[in-house]
Every structure is written in C-alpha cells, then in structure tokens.
Write a protein that binds this DNA or RNA. Structure first.
Lengths: 246, 246
DNA sequence: ACCTAGACTTGATCTGGGTCAAGGGTTCGC
DNA sequence: GCGAACCCTTGACCCAGATCAAGTCTAGGT
C-alpha cells in the first residue's frame, strides 16, 4: 500500500504522502520535475478546465474534491468521475480536455506543465507504467459505475455512492473500523444526483428512506454515520467483497 | 492513422494489419513475442473468461466481437465494453479478471501469455506507452457511455449505439461515405439491451420507432441502412462532431 | 433581530420504460 | 414437412422515478 503510494505522481509537500520516487530504482524524479510544477487553488464551484479547452497541464489532487462532468446541449449533465486526493488529472498525449473538470469543494491541485511532463515520461518508463496502472484502475472504476448507472435502482445507487465515499474516506483516515464508518458527504444532493443519473428530489427521498430504515444516520445534512458497513454494501447490491479487490 | 496501427500490440498474420512494430525505433518486437503467442477461437455465446478467474493471457481481438459484462447475483447484467477487432483484452499487472468476457459473435483472439508479456513491457517502454494510449481511449469511451446510461432516453440510447457501431464498421471498411452508412448489427436485441441498460422489448420498440420515422431502414432484423448519419447523430443527442474526436 | 439565498425535504401527479403475455419468422435437426 | 428452439415484435398494464409545487432549515449579511 505504502509502496504503491510512493510511486504515485505527485510532489514533496502534499499533505498526502505521494511523490514521484521510484522504490525500484532508488531515483528521485523530483529533481527533473522542479521548475515545471506549481500549485493551483480553486473555490468550490469553480471550473478548473472546460471540455474542449487546450490542456496546458496535468497534475493530481492535493486536497478537496473535483469532478469530471459531461453536459448535453439541453443541460442534462452526468458526472463521469470523482477525483479525490491523490487522483491524477489530465491526459498525457492529448491536446484538449474531454470533460469539464469542476471543483466540487475547495480544491488544491499540484500541476505539471504538460509538455515537459510528457518528455519526462518518455525518459522514465516507470512513471509511464505507474500511470498505466492508475488509468487501468480508473477504467475499472468507470466500468463498475456503468453497472450502477445501467442496472441499479435509486436506493441501490445511493447505497453504492455512500459505500464508495465512505470506503475512500475511511481508508484515507486509516480508521478502517470494521462495521461502523463515519464521514462527511462532500457532495450536495444535486451533485449526487448528477453522479447517479437521478434527480435531486429522488436522492433526497432515498436518503430519507435509508435513514428511516436505519441503514444510515444523519447528523445535519452532510455528516453520515454508517452503523453497519456490511448492511450498506448489501443495500448497494454488491457482493460483500466486491469493491475490496480494487 | 496507419502509424498508430503499427504500434498496436498484435501479431503478424492477423487479417487486421497490426503488429508490435515501433515506427519510432525501427525495432520489430515480434521476435521477442515468438513462442509466447497463440490463437484462440470461440463460438458465439462462449465465455472467454469468467470474472474472478486467474488471467493467464492478454491479447487482442482478431475477428468477431467480444463483450465485457458484469452480472449481479440476481441476474441483472450490464455490458461494460464492446471489443471490436484490434481491441486489446486483459490487464497487465492484475492476476484475476474483473469482468466476464463473452464471445458475442464467433471470435478469434491473438493471445500472449501474461507473464512474458509483462516482462517484455518493462523492457520495451514504447509498448507500455502504446498501451497507456489505448487504455486512455477506452477510459474516454467508458465515460462517454456513462452519459448514455445515466441521462439519455431509450431512443437516444439506441441511436447512440447505432452511431458507434456504424462508425466503427464504416471506418474498418474504409468506406467513410458522408451521410449514408450500411452495416450489419453484430448484436442480438438482448445484447443491445444489456449494453444500453434497457430491456429487449424496449430496444425492439425503439428500433421499430426509428424505422417508422425514417431514421434507419431495416433489411431483415440485423442489416441496417442509415440514410443520413447526421440525422442519426442528432437523434443520439450528441453534438454533431462529438464522437469524431476520438 | 430580520432578510435573503441556497440547500434540502416532502407531497401530488405524471410518464417512460419495465413487466407480463401472446403472438410471428427463421433455422435447425429429424 | 414438422416440431423445437431462438429471436424478434407488439399489445396491455403497472410502477419507479421524473416533474411540478410548496414548504423547512441554516448560514450570512445588514
């Protein structure tokens, strides 16, 4: 786990310990990255980059949450990815962005100018390999989400989202308590709806239903307690260990 | 375009001209691949590999169509990817398969034993980089599909699927006629439903509706003529050049 | 203290697509 | 030529989730 993090593309001073240091070859790539990396901060609601814009940088999320969204001309929007701290943003080798990237909460990103980053990738194969692993993980996540979008009921969708956020949050805090999990929802009801392919009213109703049925407890609108994670997974319709393999 | 194909992982005798030859460095990797590659044939309906099984090989589709599907315990299934000739199958670096891979039509695959293939990847960085590009393309496709699954109506879903298959098919045949497109549907109504998150009855009804409205013509059940590709794209709800960028 | 705005909840009603059911067409083996 | 197995179509009905419409709750701002 820690060894994997060490191979993540990132930077020295991030609160999340992830650096472009390769455990295998003992080289420190930070040297080659210096001068091309910089930080960018965004307020909640700000757009980081618009779909179709020229992409000047790649980078990773340091703190906060960003989301990838696609919008149709008539305004229907679908969130196609949730970027949590340590997630990579951008696509080496492509000139323009394919989706809108929006700061869902206040957000800090660690960026690298794209061209020099691509050059470095060619010279340091293990960075490309690490990037491949990360991309394959994202692909798996996207495909798991396709099952959620295509076949699950509203209640199962909510439970799936809560279990993903809960798991990520718990593992970041290293408090992998079996059973009980506590976390703050970083998304508005509307953002949840956009991620799940629902309306915000349906999200609200199903949250109330899950609360009524004792699957979750709510302190305020955003603070969630899950008394039994197994129960939540069950509601999500996943087999018990489904997401643990990733 | 041709240069890209030359970099695709593949083999010498495939009907599709794709080989692991690197245009950049003039090396021919086939040499290192010999002895670890082999062919496998499957009949329509056969399962290539089950989710959770140990993955002994990676490879690419030579002819026919395979699909990646996920199934819930109660039998609901969602197709999460469609593999057309030249598409890569498998995940270097992972021991077990994440989805069922099913032969949708008769299928021939060109396979490489996974371990030696992984070893080769480490030694020949440009293969890893080509694989990264392909994976990023797949990720884009998966995310585009999330919009289809989450926000589009049944009619738009059908139109989206037809435009994807039609485009792929037309570009393979190099008959990129502007406007009119003719192709054979390689999927049953049920497979279409599984891909679109619909029931087969709804697929059938919407196909009839598109036919009634002159968006498509049907000769038999599977042979499709699209008189105006622009019209089809319009029905799909994409902006006109949406899928062309990929 | 009061006002406003954004985030959320809840109710009433409507509808797109699911479900159930009854066919039709083709292709196979016998 | 006949049944059987698929694959596909069409109709009738139903329901989960969308839509429309009031509200409530909370945090700021003045």
């Amino acid at each position: 786990m820690n060894e994997t993090l060490d191979l993540t593309i990132g930077c020295e001073s991030c609160p999340i310990k992830h650096r472009a240091v390769c455990a295998r070859c003992d080289a420190d790539e930070l040297e080659t990255l210096d001068g091309i990396k910089y930080y960018r901060s965004f307020e909640a609601g700000q757009t980081v980059i618009w779909s179709g814009d020229r992409m000047e940088f790649v980078g990773s999320v340091v703190s906060g949450i960003a989301s990838l969204t696609q919008t149709m001309e008539d305004g229907r929007t679908q969130m196609v990815g949730l970027l949590l701290p340590s997630d990579f943003v951008g696509r080496p080798g492509r000139e323009t962005a394919s989706y809108d990237v929006v700061a869902t909460t206040d957000l800090v990103m660690c960026c690298f100018r794209r061209k020099p980053f691509e050059a470095m990738m060619v010279e340091t194969p293990h960075v490309a390999q690490r990037l491949l692993e990360m991309t394959l993980d994202e692909l798996d996540a996207a495909r798991e989400w396709m099952l959620v979008l295509g076949r699950k009921t509203a209640r199962e969708k909510i439970a799936s989202l809560l279990s993903i956020i809960g798991r990520r949050d718990a593992s970041l805090k290293l408090e992998g308590t079996i059973g009980k999990i506590v976390f703050d929802l970083p998304l508005t009801r509307e953002a949840m709806a956009d991620y799940l392919g629902l309306t915000l009213e349906t999200v609200s109703r199903q949250m109330s239903a899950l609360k009524r049925d004792g699957v979750i407890e709510l302190q305020g609108k955003r603070h969630v307690t899950v008394p039994s994670f197994e129960r939540l997974m069950d509601e999500a319709g996943d087999d018990a260990d489904g997401g643990m393999m990733a």
